[in-house]
């Protein structure tokens, strides 16, 4: 009995040390987050001018489990996705000039899901070195095959994900707009990863986007759309007053 007490005490020391260090780490993390850049952000809308190109329906009969999901609403290609009021979805708007805030720390881990043999989201925005998860919600194997520019700092990879397998953790080490992602097993599957090193926003179904946490200053915004390419625009963010920007792409 006597011997056990000092033993326990010895055991306690490193545990206390670890807990202490962990606590300190958490606190320091919080203190970093607690100081956001003051000022507002940029909100805006992306629109398409003209008749959107016809999006072809996708026949998924070769993969019955996916075809069943789209039975009532046939899936179509997603090269140009336009909402009812002309808003253009899946456009990434990011700061291409004027950012001096250093590395952007990601707040939550983005997810790139495969569902119904389509990518959700169709366009995934991530910042450099940000870990993102690739998940498979389908009853079939997918292979995830992102194809960055050959010879660049980002490397092509190609991995399969059987149904029920855990998420794949992935990261892009360098800026690249944009990386095309394919599934070879289901050749119609097409998505993009847009890797930036500055704050960004992705337009939703109505075409609206939001870039938050910008210190006051002059910025150049770039909007990228997979079919129409890029557009740029200068904005000024004043203290406490968010700027607005409207991008209009022209249907060819």
């Amino acid at each position: 009995m006597r011997r056990q007490i000092p033993f326990k005490a010895i055991l306690f020391l490193p545990v206390a040390l670890v807990v202490g260090i962990a606590l300190m780490l958490v606190v320091s993390q919080k203190s970093v987050k607690a100081a956001p850049p003051s000022g507002g952000g940029v909100t805006g809308i992306v629109k398409l001018d003209g008749t959107p190109p016809h999006q072809k329906p996708i026949d998924m009969s070769k993969e019955p489990s996916c075809a069943a999901i789209h039975k009532d609403h046939p899936a179509t290609t997603e090269n140009v996705v336009v909402g009812s009021d002309g808003g253009l979805a899946n456009v990434v708007v990011y700061i291409s000039e004027g950012w001096s805030g250093g590395d952007v720390t990601p707040s939550s881990q983005p997810v790139f899901d495969q569902k119904g043999c389509q990518y959700q989201p169709h366009v995934l925005g991530v910042v450099v070195n940000e870990h993102f998860k690739v998940t498979n919600s389908d009853q079939t194997s997918h292979n995830i095959h992102p194809m960055p520019k050959p010879g660049g700092p980002n490397h092509e990879w190609n991995k399969s994900q059987p149904p029920g397998s855990p998420p794949i953790d992935a990261v892009w080490p360098a800026e690249e707009v944009a990386i095309h992602v394919k599934c070879n097993i289901h050749p119609w599957m097409s998505g993009y990863h847009v890797v930036v090193k500055t704050p960004y926003g992705v337009s939703d179904d109505k075409g609206s986007f939001k870039i938050e946490n910008l210190p006051p200053g002059n910025y150049t915004l770039t909007a990228w759309q997979e079919t129409y390419g890029t557009q740029t625009q200068k904005v000024t963010v004043a203290a406490g007053k968010p700027a607005t920007a409207t991008f209009t792409f022209k249907a060819k």
């Binding site: 194997s141 292979n143 190609n158 991995k159 399969s160 994900q161 059987p162 029920g164 397998s165 855990p166 794949i168 097993i185």
Partner: peptide, 13 residues
Amino acid sequence: SNGAPGNLMTPEY
């Protein structure tokens, strides 16, 4: 080296 997620065998594996 290409990984077997969750120890499940992938098609390429």
